[in-house]
Design a binder for these strands. Structure first.
Lengths: 206, 206
DNA sequence: CCTACCGATCGGTAGG
DNA sequence: CCTACCGATCGGTAGG
């Protein structure tokens, strides 16, 4: 049994993701939590502050996870697989995270730009540098624009998961496996043998 | 000077794209058009019908344009360039079109899925068949999943343009040129010499 | 194309 | 954590 503040965050995340911020009333959130609106406003003093709390929780995951993955990985190939697998896993596990981020990009582009810079900025720079080194080593295509590439791959995963249900996607696993293929084959000079992602291994073992 | 129904559509498109359907009131739309709310409701009898009219206008463009492009193009390479250039041009010309489609995917996934099937379904199938033929000719990578590939490229353009302002994108032209590179290099077996898109040619000439 | 109005719902507060 | 209430705004209608 989780505490009420966390339960409010869970319910609000689902509501904001599926119906949007304007489309989700505080009364509706409170009702699903099992309390009344004024009680909810004791935990989060305004709807805007609830919105921030919901979004920050999504971003904080990456603050914990990104350094761990980057330390584990050694080769460029390892890093690519580790990072992309974790990004895919995170959003496929709960597609509402992807919908939430996508809506926030549309609703408050400037605010989200600042949050991304705070939470992900340093890592995007590190990744861009890795890619640049890959170019020098001859492993990565020369015409890659490192920073734009990283942003587009993130966008492709988030957007692909968020909109999978609006596009007659057969299965979410097949759908994202093509994203992984596109990302890999447009990055490396010579596409390696097809290598299973952790996700598809889990699927085959399960 | 356009007629009032069209002006309402223009203003509503901008509003729905930037602030969302729930975030744009009929009074606000009417005010910007220069009339009052009841007058607006004479042209579009409900907010939902205005929403449909706005969305249909975006889709109808493709009903006119897609057959034209497919007829013009002869080689697979031509078709790829022609189509991708037109998709990019359409959404970069007015990014609100991209934001609108993205929001609709999130707000009403089932409804948009049906609209996409109606307007684009046949063409997506045709494109998938072309890609399959390219595989047989040895021009296209064997591990491409044709239908998923097409959907992801569309999604990458729409999502990339819609969220360009939320991502510290330097210039929209550089941003989309990396999308074109990713799409091309992940499709063809042997990436051709870098070939300018019509968009970047216009930029260089202008 | 307008004024005037409807019930419903919104985010938030008072006060306990 | 609640009941009771606030002004503002929503989509939509009546009637001209």
């Amino acid at each position: 049994m989780q505490n009420i503040s966390e339960k409010i965050l869970d319910v609000a995340t689902k509501g904001f993701a599926l119906a949007g911020y304007d489309g989700t009333s505080l009364s509706a959130i409170a009702k699903e939590v099992g309390i009344k609106k004024p009680s909810l406003l004791y935990h989060y003093p305004s709807k805007e502050q609830l919105r921030s709390a919901v979004l920050n929780r999504v971003f904080e995951h990456w603050n914990d996870e990104l350094p761990r993955i980057l330390k584990l990985a050694t080769s460029g190939e390892d890093r690519f697989n580790g990072l992309l697998n974790e990004i895919v896993r995170f959003f496929v596990t709960d597609p509402n995270r992807a919908r939430l981020v996508m809506r926030e990009m549309l609703d408050r582009p400037d605010h989200l730009s600042a949050s991304m810079e705070d939470y992900l900025g340093p890592y995007i720079t590190i990744l861009s540098d890795y890619i640049q080194k890959g170019v020098e080593r001859g492993e990565v295509r020369k015409d890659v624009q490192p920073r734009a590439y990283v942003l587009h791959v993130i966008q492709m995963v988030v957007g692909g998961v968020a909109t999978a249900s609006s596009i007659g996607a057969t299965s979410i696993e097949d759908h994202v496996s093509e994203i992984v293929r596109i990302a890999r084959s447009s990055l490396f000079v010579d596409t390696p043998q097809f290598q299973k992602t952790e996700l598809s291994e889990e699927k085959n073992n399960g």
